[in-house]
Structure formats: structure tokens, C-alpha cells
């Protein structure tokens, strides 16, 4: 798999996440930046889908159970061609199909309403089971947050997952990924309610568990392959990630769970995401017209 392609798409998506959240003036950057490499790996390297026909029945499904990170989905969906980039600037505005949390009825390609944490895994189990019962080829991907798995419903689903549909219709078409960025809303997960040992918990519930670096496209790809090869039941991938990944002042900082950057902060964030130093920034923008336009638009927000 050409990792350079995925990492360049993910970088573009990170810039769009910062851009749209800043225009919206609210939202969740930390968990969007931690999950974007997983979302890009699934949407661009993996699932069978057709942005021109979002309701194509044969499509695979991606359920972002940690729905507050939906800007990551929107960035990837725009990049894939579900809708034009400009629509990203309508995020969270009245009448926009880009709701603050996923709304299946507002935007084709969003597969379930999430945003109330803890519900996505059960829906994913049902989807996967439904496809298996119909002998359909569709695969289902579900992404959970590490704070989210404190919800009891997740563990009800965890108990059911490996048993569901057995023996004839086990949900081997389901891959679940935990975005283990170590931070929830109020604080670090260990400070609120420690989950460890996470791997052993899921194993004890009967899931095969694969641990990876959730920002390493090679490891993500291999884990997704391995999960797909396990056809007898669902697979659980623990992706170790960094909340706020790519923006120095957001990384590992609970403060950036649920607030949008100010325009000046957003411009710094974008410069860091593109790996450009402060002295080199003006020269860089002179060459990268697209980024220069995004930066100009953000500066204009500041003057509003």
C-alpha cells in the first residue's frame, strides 16, 4: 500500500479539520486529529464505496461511534468526493448537512446518528449481522473512543460480539478500532476511570486483539488485513494514538478536547501540520497557493 499517498491525504485532512473548526467557532479538535489517520486508512485504502452513489447497497460501512470527532469524517468525505470542499465551512451552521455530530438523515455517507457515546458498537453488530444473514459481502468498521468505552452498552456489545450469529453467521465482517488517545473530556482517562488492562478485557470477552500505532499507516494497513482474514468473528484493534496529533499545543492536552482554535492559533496549527518553520512560512505560502488562500480566509475571520 502506498503509504505516502495516505499520509499526504491525512495531512490535507488535518488542515481541513483545523480550518472547518475555526470557521465553526466550536467543536472537537483533539479527537478528530487522533482519529484521522484511522479514518483515512479505512476510507482510502480499504472500504468499497462510491462517493457518487452514497446509497449503493454493496458499500462497506464506517460507523464513527465517537461522533464528536465527525470533522475527521467530513474532511475525508470531502476529499473522497462526497461533497465539495467549500461545504466544510458550513460545519455547525444553521441548515448545514454538516451537523455538529453525525446525522444520517442530513448527509448521505453518514451511516448512523452518533454523538451520544456508547451506541455505535451495538449498531455495528446489528449491521454486520444483517449482512451476514443475507450472505452479503459488506464489511463494517466501527471506531470507538477510549473514554467512550466506559459506557456500559459498549460492554454489553463486547459480550455479544464474538457470540453473535454463531455458528453460521458469526460477524467476521466486523472490525472494531479503539482510538486510544488516553484523554477524555474532563481529564486523562487514567485520572477519571482507568481502563487498564484494556487488551486483556477485550480478550477475556472473546475478541482477538491487535495492538498498533494508530498513526503508522503500515501498521494500520496490516492490522486491517489481519482483521479481514479472521473470518470466524469480529476483531478488535487497539490503536495507540495521540490526542491532538500534529499540533504541538493540542497534543496530549485535555484542554483541546472540545474547543475550536482562534484564527491565529489555527494558522500556527496549519503551519505545524505542514512541517514548515516560522521563518520559512512566508516563502512557503508564496508557493502553496491553496494553503495561502486558507490562511487568508482564517486571517479575515480574525478581523470580523
Amino acid at each position: 500500500m502506498p503509504d505516502a499517498r495516505l499520509s499526504s491525504i491525512a495531512r490535507e485532512c488535518r488542515v481541513q479539520i483545523i480550518r472547518m473548526l475555526t470557521h465553526a467557532g466550536s467543536g472537537h479538535p483533539g479527537g478528530s486529529l487522533s482519529v484521522i489517520d484511522l479514518v483515512v486508512s479505512i476510507m482510502f485504502g480499504r472500504i468499497r464505496h462510491d462517493p457518487a452513489r452514497p446509497n449503493w447497497p454493496e458499500r462497506d460501512r464506517l460507523i464513527l461511534s465517537k461522533g464528536h470527532a465527525v470533522p475527521a469524517m467530513y474532511a475525508a468525505m470531502a476529499r473522497a468526493g462526497y461533497f465539495p470542499d467549500e461545504r466544510l465551512l458550513t460545519l455547525r451552521k444553521l441548515g448545514s448537512s454538516l451537523q455538529g455530530h453525525p446525522d444520517r438523515t442530513a448527509l448521505p455517507g453518514i451511516e448512523a446518528a452518533t454523538g451520544s457515546l456508547g451506541q455505535g458498537l451495538s449498531i455495528s453488530l446489528g449491521l454486520a449481522l444483517g449482512f451476514r444473514l443475507g450472505d452479503k459481502p459488506n464489511r463494517v468498521y466501527c471506531i470507538l473512543g477510549d473514554g467512550e468505552i466506559q459506557e456500559g452498552q459498549v460492554w454489553e456489545a463486547a459480550m455479544a460480539g464474538p457470540k453473535l450469529g454463531q455458528p453460521a453467521h458469526g460477524v467476521g465482517n466486523l472490525t472494531v478500532i479503539l482510538d486510544k488517545n488516553r484523554v477524555q473530556l474532563d481529564d486523562f482517562v487514567t485520572k477519571i476511570l482507568d481502563l487498564e488492562p484494556v487488551v486483556q478485557k477485550w480478550q477475556a470477552f472473546g475478541w482477538p486483539v491487535i495492538e498498533i500505532d494508530g498513526h503508522d499507516f503500515d501498521q494500520i494497513g496490516k492490522a486491517l488485513d489481519q482483521a479481514q482474514a479472521h473470518t470466524g468473528g469480529p476483531t478488535f484493534i487497539v490503536a495507540h494514538t495521540v490526542k491532538g496529533k500534529g499540533v504541538s499545543f493540542m497534543e496530549n492536552n485535555p484542554e483541546w478536547h472540545g474547543k475550536a482554535p482562534k484564527p491565529a492559533e489555527a494558522i500556527t496549527a496549519i503551519r505545524e501540520l505542514l512541517g514548515v518553520s516560522t521563518p520559512a512560512w512566508d516563502d512557503y505560502l508564496a508557493k502553496d497557493r491553496a494553503t495561502a488562500a486558507i490562511v487568508a480566509e482564517l486571517s479575515a475571520l480574525d478581523k470580523k
Binding site: A24, R92, Q99, G100, D103, T114, G115, S116
Partner: peptide
């Protein structure tokens, strides 16, 4: 609450 939308 505004921007967060219906789920919240």
C-alpha cells in the same frame, strides 16, 4: 446549546 446539535 446551539452548534453541538440535536444529540447533545
Amino acid at each position: 446549546i446551539g452548534e453541538d446539535g440535536y444529540s447533545q
